[in-house]
């Protein structure tokens, strides 16, 4: 029985099936809202809301936070925040159905858990920083941007994947 569960947890959708469904979800998003999907925007809203709560004067004065603050709406009352709440629920459901719910750190057995976690934090930091420079991440800029043929979307997409391939050699010991 146990082996049965373990087997199921490694079975994923066919990537082309997953891609077509994801593309249809993105198409539906444009059809309903006139905008695409996103992810880093919700993290940004969280940061803006936290800074606004802890240091409201600083947030109002900042040239960056103030772009995302308005008098009549809370920074968390944002489409992408609701979308990410849904995302967490949807991913949780999928994980539950496939027996993948478990607190664990996934890493290459050749490196320690600590090393994996340090690099996960560093990677998140770089991605967060870069997503602000490019005004969006893999979801908002690359995927949703390229779907509407945005020039910037294509440039960001090529820059993300090109850079990751370019730097992959230097970080190979983390993964293989």
């Amino acid at each position: 029985m146990k082996t049965n569960i373990e087997d199921k947890s490694k079975i994923y959708y066919n990537p082309y099936f997953g891609g077509v469904v994801l593309g249809l979800i993105l198409l539906a998003t444009f059809y309903f809202t006139g905008r695409g999907l996103g992810a880093s925007g919700a993290a940004k809203s969280t940061v803006v809301a936290a800074v606004d709560k802890l240091a409201p004067e600083h947030a109002q004065k900042s040239a960056y936070y103030s772009k995302f603050l308005s008098d009549d709406e809370h920074p968390l009352n944002n489409w992408l925040v609701f979308e990410v709440i849904g995302m967490l629920a949807g991913a949780f459901l999928s994980g539950a159905l496939s027996g993948r719910l478990k607190f664990r750190t996934e890493h290459n057995p050749k490196i320690t858990t600590k090393r994996r976690l340090i690099f996960a934090g560093i990677g998140g930091f770089f991605f967060g920083f870069g997503s602000q420079i490019a005004r969006g991440c893999t979801s908002g800029a690359a995927l949703s941007g390229a779907a509407v043929l945005s020039l910037g979307g294509f440039i960001t997409m090529m820059a993300i994947f090109g850079s990751a391939y370019g730097f992959a050699y230097f970080f190979r010991k983390l993964w293989i």
């Binding site: 930091f125 920083f129 820059a159 850079s163 990751a164 970080f171």
Partner: peptide
């Protein structure tokens, strides 16, 4: 931004 994100992706 894309290049910085790429570094974050692979690390």
């Amino acid at each position: 931004g894309g290049v910085v994100m790429g570094v974050g992706f692979v690390t």
